[in-house]
Simulated assay, not measured.
Amino acid sequence: MRITKGVARGEPVSFTFNGVSYTGYAGESVACALFASGMAHLRDSPRSHQPRGMFCLMGSCQECLVWVNGRKVPACQQPLVASLQVSSISNEAP
């Protein structure tokens, strides 16, 4: 559930993750927008193939790495903008 009272947010924007459309708020991180939409599994670990998602939320751990418009970035450090195309790094590069 998103906090709504007393919070200034950007405009609602649409983006995709692995081809599925989601909605978040402009300026929030991709990781937060996905987590608020119920998506916690962002990729699989390369060795054990276990699910990975948000952990530190400050870009240090690299657990939330995703492809964003063809670049590999931590989802927690990528501000959300309209029409962003995000995919798991376990998928081939877009």
Rank of each mutant, 00 (worst) to 15 (best):
E63F: 09
R47A: 13
G27A: 05
M54S: 12
Q85S: 14
S48I: 00
V20S: 10
D44L: 07
I3F: 14
M58I: 15
F55K: 14
V86S: 08
N18E: 11
G53C: 01
R47S: 05
C76Y: 06
A33V: 04
P79S: 08
R9E: 11
S48C: 10
G24M: 03
V7L: 07
C32H: 15
A31E: 06
G38N: 03
A33C: 08
F55W: 13
R52Y: 05
I89M: 07
Q77K: 12
A8K: 14
A36Q: 11
S29V: 04
V81N: 03
A33H: 02
S83R: 14
P12T: 04
S37M: 04
A26Q: 11
S87R: 04
R43A: 02
H41M: 03
M1R: 10
A36S: 14
E92M: 11
K72W: 11
F55Y: 10
F17L: 05
K72L: 13
V30T: 06
S29P: 12
F15H: 00
A40M: 11
N69Q: 14
E11Q: 10
S83G: 15
H49N: 04
S29T: 01
N18M: 01
M39E: 11
M39N: 12
E11V: 04
L65F: 13
M54W: 05
S60P: 15
C32F: 15
G19H: 07
Y25P: 08
N69M: 13
S48M: 05
K72P: 15
L34V: 05
F15P: 00
R9L: 05
C76A: 03
M39D: 10
V30Q: 09
G24D: 00
S48H: 09
N69S: 07
P51R: 01
Y22I: 03
A26C: 15
I89W: 02
N18P: 13
L57M: 07
R2D: 15
R43D: 01
V30D: 06
A40S: 10
R71C: 14
H49C: 01
S45H: 04
S88D: 08
P74M: 12
S48K: 09
V86I: 09
V66Y: 06
T23I: 04
A31F: 08
A36N: 04
S60M: 15
A82R: 03
R2M: 13
M54K: 09
G24C: 00
Q78W: 09
I3G: 13
G70Q: 09
G6T: 08
S87E: 01
T16F: 11
P46H: 00
P79H: 02
P12R: 13
A33N: 12
M58S: 14
H49V: 03
M39Q: 09
S37A: 06
S45F: 08
V66L: 08
P79L: 07
F35P: 07
R9K: 10
E63I: 07
S90D: 07
E28C: 07
L80I: 01
E11C: 07
Q85Y: 14
G38Q: 04
L57F: 10
C76D: 08
S45D: 07
V68R: 07
Q62H: 15
D44V: 02
C56E: 04
Y25W: 06
A36V: 11
R2V: 09
S14Y: 14
S90L: 08
N69E: 14
C64F: 10
P12C: 02
V81C: 09
P94T: 00
R2I: 10
L80G: 01
Q77T: 06
M39K: 14
S87Y: 06
G24T: 00
V20Q: 13
R71G: 15
V68W: 05
H41V: 10
R47E: 08
